[in-house]
Structure formats: C-alpha cells, structure tokens
Design a protein around this nucleic acid. Structure first.
Lengths: 196, 196
DNA sequence: CCTACCGATCGGTAGG
DNA sequence: CCTACCGATCGGTAGG
C-alpha cells in the first residue's frame, strides 16, 4: 500500500530506530536489508526505497545515532558555565552514556570506527567527521579552562582530549567485553584526576 | 594433489598468515573462505579442510595473532627487571607495536573485541581470555612495583591497568581513524605521566 | 509500498 | 587437496 508523506516519514524513522538497535550489536555492515524487512514486517524493496542503497542507509543510521549522542551528551552541558565546569559536565554525561549503555552494543561510533577505519569511502569519512566534531567540542572547553586559569597553563588541549578519549574507550571496552562493574568508577576517577 | 603432513603444515601456516592480514582490515567475520581460496590459489574446500568450519578458522587466526602479539610485546620485556622497569618496557613495546602497525588494520584484538562483544560464543570467549591474560600480565608488574615502593602505596592495580589500556586504545584509534602523527607522542607522554 | 526476480557470494558437504 | 554441488542470503532492480 502506498503511504502518505507523513506516514512515510514515520516509516523512515521506524526503520532508522530499528537500524540503530541492530547495528549497535551487529555493526553497520552486519545490518542487512533483509533482516530489517523481516523485523519491520516490510518487503526488502519497501525498506530500501527510503534510502536507495545500503550505503545511504548506513549514512542515515550514523546521522540518527549522532542525534542520540548529542541529546545524551552534548545537551546536558549546555546550561553549564563555559570552561572547566562545562567540560566536567560533558565528561560526566559521556561516562553516564557509556555506563547506561544507551546503545545496547556499546558506543556506536567507536564500533563504527573500528569497522570502517580500513575501508575508504563516505561511511568512513562520516565516522571520522563525527569524532572530529566531538574532539573539537572537548578541546574548545579545555582551551577556555586554560585561559581562565582553571587548568594548568602548560596544558596541551590535544593531549588532554586524547587522554579523555582513552578513558572513555577503556570504559566502553570494559563494559562491553568484560562486563566489568568497576569500570565506570575507574573512569570517573581517571576523569577527575585530569579535571580536578 | 594430496600433500604430505609437512607440506600440509606449511599450507596451514600460509592460510593463517593470510587470514591475519585480511582479518586485520576486514574483521574476523569479513574474512571469508572464498576470498582466502582465491588469494591462495586454492579451492574453498582445500582451505576449509584444515580447520573444519569458519568458527574453527577464526579461533586459529586469533591464536596466530596472539603469537605475534606476544613476540612483539611480551618478549622484549623478558630480560627487564621485574616491577616498574619491566612494566615500562612492556608499555613501550606496546606503544611501538601500535605505532608500527604490526597488524595493518590496527590492533587485532581491539577490533575483534568490538566485533564480537555482542555475540556470545567461543570466539567472544577467546577474545576475552586474551585480554584477561594481558591485563593480568600488566597488573602483576604493577603489584611488584608497588611492593618495591616504585609506585605509590595507594596505587590500585586495576585502575592503573584500566588507564594504560585506555591510552593504548586512544593511540590505536587515532592511528587508524585519524592517521594522527601526534598520537604516539601523546601516548608516550600519558604512559610516562603514570609510570614516572 | 508490493511481488517477483537477478547475479553473486556465503558456509558447508559429497565423493574422490 | 580437487570438482561439483547444496540451500540460504546478500544488495539491488523491474514493473506495478
């Protein structure tokens, strides 16, 4: 049955939400049109028609995952004062997002990075762009904190962001592979050691 | 043509070496019997006959990758004095292994962890066991260093190992996704900040 | 949004 | 170690 434009948007949103859930566990390549169609009680061509190709679907799924990440991690820090205070709120929201397993298979972008870092193309480029944006988001608050004298004057923003990313990755890894209940505590201690 | 037992062992080793190279870029699931057969100028059944199933092949590939990791990272630290000295050598070998991209697609085990952490089974268990062994290897030297008074008495070995893993993961990520030339420098600085 | 297809490829098996 | 095959599934298309 053909659907109205409004209904089609709802269908598209439903496809993307299901895709995020599947790809979080199976990866963006393990996400298949056939499985999506079965789980949504649609035909394969009905699913594919919304995107045109699997690659376009993968890019749309990345976009949806990014909306979720921003709502969970960027947004809670908006009211906080710029600089060290906001940086701390960002990092706590980040740890909380990983601890609560907002994506059931762990951080969507870390998984996508490992899946696509060796495969040139638009998907790889999109994943890298998301990380660039997030690293710059963090670096901006680091620079503000240094300028305000809330972090040591010699702080290298690139290196501090590198270390914060490492803490988050270790937390993601310990949560997903080892199901380690101490990991979030370790992560908070490690963040605090760097941000006071 | 049927081969002698010695020749068969050579063939098996050749399959595993090629498998490690492919799986490093494409993942253990992206490693397919058909591609292996083509690249090795063998039939699919010729490849599969050495292992019996794809899962058995994946486990054998993990074993081969582990041999390489131990030769590259564990072995250089054997002559070093137990405790902080050996821990530093282990970490430098670890950083060097990531910097030199011993596996062309980045650390084999980190990639496998992300690929399989959501898929219960023998492959996931094997990946987890390799990480457990490596974490315990590091923790043992941390405890020795604390006992010797070379690390602060209050050091939590679990937390320090967690942080070292984070540094290594951030280095792997920056190298593979961002091709960041500063990453190894950041990683060495971060290791040094924790190990003096 | 559907049915009905396409060629390609997957892991795996039978039999030699 | 091979050829020859199996059913299942892949992404995608034609036509409605």
């Amino acid at each position: 049955m053909r659907k109205s434009a409004v209904e089609a948007l709802g269908t598209r949103a439903a496809i993307l939400d299901r895709s995020v859930a599947i790809a979080s566990m199976e990866g963006l390549e393990g996400l298949t049109i056939g499985r999506l169609a079965t789980e949504l009680s649609m035909s394969k061509s009905g699913v594919l028609g919304h995107f045109g190709s699997k690659q376009a679907l993968q890019l749309a799924v990345l976009g949806r995952a990014d909306e979720i990440f921003r709502a969970e991690v960027w947004e809670p820090a908006r009211p906080a004062a710029p600089g060290l205070t906001r940086l701390r709120v960002l990092c706590e929201a980040w740890v909380s997002y990983l601890e609560r397993q907002v994506f059931p298979g762990g951080c969507f972008f870390v998984a996508a990075a490992h899946e696509f870092d060796g495969r040139p193309g638009p998907v790889r480029d999109a994943v890298e762009a998301r990380f660039d944006a997030w690293r710059e988001r963090l670096a901006k608050e680091v620079r503000r904190a240094v300028d305000a004298g809330d972090l040591p004057a010699g702080t290298d923003p690139g290196r501090l962001v590198f270390e914060l990313l490492g803490v988050a990755m270790a937390l993601n890894h310990a949560t997903q592979l080892h199901r380690d209940p101490h990991a979030a505590t370790y992560a908070r201690q490690a963040m605090k050691a760097r941000l006071g």
